[in-house]
Simulated scan of single mutants.
Amino acid sequence: MTDFTIPDLKIKPREGGYARGQEGLARILTAALSLLVEQGSKALTLRRIAAECGLKAGNIAYYFSSKEELLRELLDAIISSYEEAFDAIYHAPDTTAEERLERIVMLILEDIKTKQTTRIFPELWAMSNHDPFVHERVDHIYRRARVVLNDLVAEINPALPADERETLALFMSASMEGMTIFAGHDKPWIGKMPAIERIAVKSFLYAIRAMRPGEISGVVQPDSEPQPA
C-alpha cells in the first residue's frame, strides 16, 4: 500500500484575498463537499450550502456569483488534491517508472474504497448526463487526472505515439474508476480490492510493455504471441 494520501480538498487561494475571506471560501467549499457526499447532488443549492456552513444565502454571493462558479471551484479543489498526491509520487526520488505506476494505481484503488470518493464521482457522472456544464467540468478533471498516467506510459514504453499513449491511459483510468460501483465504500466486492489492485498493477504493466506502435490504433496487426519488453 502507498504511503501517500489524498486530502479532501486543495483550495487555491484567490489572488488578493485576505485571510478571513480565504477562511470563508474554504468553509463554503467544505460544506458543499459534505452535502455532495452525504445527501447527493440534489442538495447542492446555494441555500442548502449556506445553511450547512452557518451563513445566510446572500452571503454566498460575496464569494460566488452563481452555483456554476461554486461548482467549478469545488471540482477544481477536488482534482487539485489528487494532482498534489500524484505529483508527489511521480517525482519520488530513486524510483523506477514501474514503481511509480504501481503506487499511483494502488493510491487510486485504495481511494475508491473511501466513502467520499465512492459517493462523489457517481453523482458527478449522473449529473454530467444531463447538465452540459457538469459534463464539461467532469471531462476536464479526468483529463487532468490522466496526465500522470500518460507520462508514466511514455517512460515505460517511449516508442508509443502520443495518441496511443492517451488511449492506453484512458483505458487504465476507466478500468479503475469502474471498480467504484463494485468495490467502493459499502459495495459488495470491497473485500476483493487487494486482489483487484494486484491484477490491475500486473495487467497494466504488461499492456504498456507489450504494445507496439500502431497496434492500439489498428495500423499494425498484433503478433499471435505478445512480446513484452
Rank of each mutant, 00 (worst) to 15 (best):
A210Y: 08
V138M: 06
I181Y: 10
Y18N: 14
F204L: 06
D87F: 10
G218T: 06
V220R: 15
S128K: 08
A169I: 09
A174M: 14
R143V: 08
K113I: 07
R209W: 07
A51S: 12
R144D: 05
L124Q: 06
Y90I: 01
V37Q: 01
E69V: 13
E23S: 15
R146M: 13
I181D: 08
A19F: 10
K113R: 15
Y142H: 13
R119C: 03
D94K: 12
H185C: 01
G24P: 07
S41G: 01
A97Q: 07
R27N: 02
A57H: 14
E155H: 11
V148E: 00
E84K: 13
A145Y: 09
S224C: 04
Q116I: 00
S175R: 14
A92F: 08
L205F: 01
A51D: 13
P226G: 12
S224P: 10
V138R: 09
G58Q: 11
P194V: 00
Q22I: 09
I79F: 04
V147D: 04
P213K: 14
K187R: 15
D223K: 15
I49Q: 07
F64K: 00
M106C: 03
V105G: 05
S128L: 00
M1P: 07
T30Q: 12
D151G: 06
S175F: 12
I120M: 01
R212K: 15
L70Q: 06
I6C: 09
Y18P: 05
A97V: 00
A162M: 12
M172D: 05
S203R: 12
G184K: 04
N157W: 00
S81F: 11
V105Q: 01
R144M: 10
D76Y: 12
I196S: 09
A92N: 02
I60T: 09
E123M: 08
L170A: 10
G17Y: 13
P188A: 03
L170V: 11
E73L: 13
T167C: 12
R143F: 03
V201T: 01
R146S: 08
R209D: 07
K113T: 15
D186T: 14
H91N: 13
R72S: 12
I120E: 05
I49D: 07
G58P: 05
G40Y: 05
M127A: 15
G16T: 10
R20H: 08
L33R: 06
D223L: 15
Q221N: 13
P194A: 06
L70C: 02
A126P: 02
L70N: 00
A162I: 15
P7M: 10
L152G: 03
I11E: 06
C53M: 08
L160I: 02
M172F: 11
K56Q: 14
F171V: 12
P132M: 02
A174P: 05
M193H: 06
A162F: 14
E123W: 09
I78K: 02
Q39F: 06
I108W: 04
P226C: 09
A195W: 07
Y62C: 05
R198Q: 14
D87K: 14
T5E: 07
E136L: 04
M211F: 11
Y90D: 01
E197C: 13
L149K: 06
P7V: 02
R198M: 08
A229C: 03
D94N: 15
T2D: 00
A85D: 06
D3A: 11
K12C: 08
